[in-house]
Amino acid sequence: MSLDLKFTFTEKKDTRSGFGDGFLEAGRKNPNVVGLCADLIGSLKMGDFQKEFPERFFQTGIAEANMIGISAGLAIGGKIPFAGTFANFATGRVYDQIRQSVAYSDKNVKICASHAGLTLGEDGATHQILEDLGMMKMLPHMTVINPCDYNQTKAATLAIAEHEGPVYLRFGRPSWPIFTPADQKFEIGKAWKMIDGKDVTIFATGHLVWEAVVAEAMLRQEGIHAEVINIHTIKPLDEEAILESVKKTGCAVSAEEHQINGGLGDSIAQTLIRHNPAPLEYVGVNDSFGESGTPTQLLEKYGLNAENIVKAAKRALARK
């Protein structure tokens, strides 16, 4: 049975390429934009910027802590550093360096984190960070962004270059549907209602926004009308949009490629519990590490695909 999707795609691409292309454009727009990478220039798609602006790009070698410190220093000198590595090494590895030199010191550093979540695939759990959103959103001053496809990642990259303050930008490795418009304006902190609905709200972030779009169509076939809201900014969270939607639908699902503990769902739960306690079901990794496998296999095994969003929506509805 074919699905009547409200958003479709003709092309797939990795979100890290959206970052790389946005980074190059940001560099062309603003000579203060500089880049750093810890021996993963190819993986982060930072090579085009490096080629065009060699004097504004710094290879740090495999030394992430040093890279964060240097970024803070470049920011003191008025530059806008984009520091790139895998999400695991961009967060957990350097948490105290970020905490003291970037967040607490309020430095205009953009931490650019690729290969986040399970969908990095075969490299396995050592590299599949599922705790980064939690760690980063806990830091005062930090803005946390997790875009959903190539176009949104590119737009987000351009937006954070113009935003003053520390930012954590999370993206990924797999080739993924491009279903949002190329010319979109990215507003930090402003949730995007992608699909109107009345029965249940699906709040999704990152790669799982696509799964939410698919889940919406599956639910509609069963007569359930879900609202889909794209939460690209985890922090600051658009509480207004969340409350407005749940006031209408009366229940919600959160969907993220992250631990349930400390993720987007947790933030939404805090908002709901304070203002409008309503049933909320989580789609996320349930207190476990990942493993090697293909992205599709892993999303299925760990309960993160459209089918699981559908099930969660039904559980939420039943609790209304």
Binding site: E122, A125, T294
Partner: peptide, 16 residues
């Protein structure tokens, strides 16, 4: 090696 449900994770792991 590197397949789902394997003890031979992409990078060495103990919990398998």
């Amino acid at each position: 090696f590197r397949k789902l449900n394997s003890r031979l994770q992409g990078h060495p792991a103990t919990h398998e």
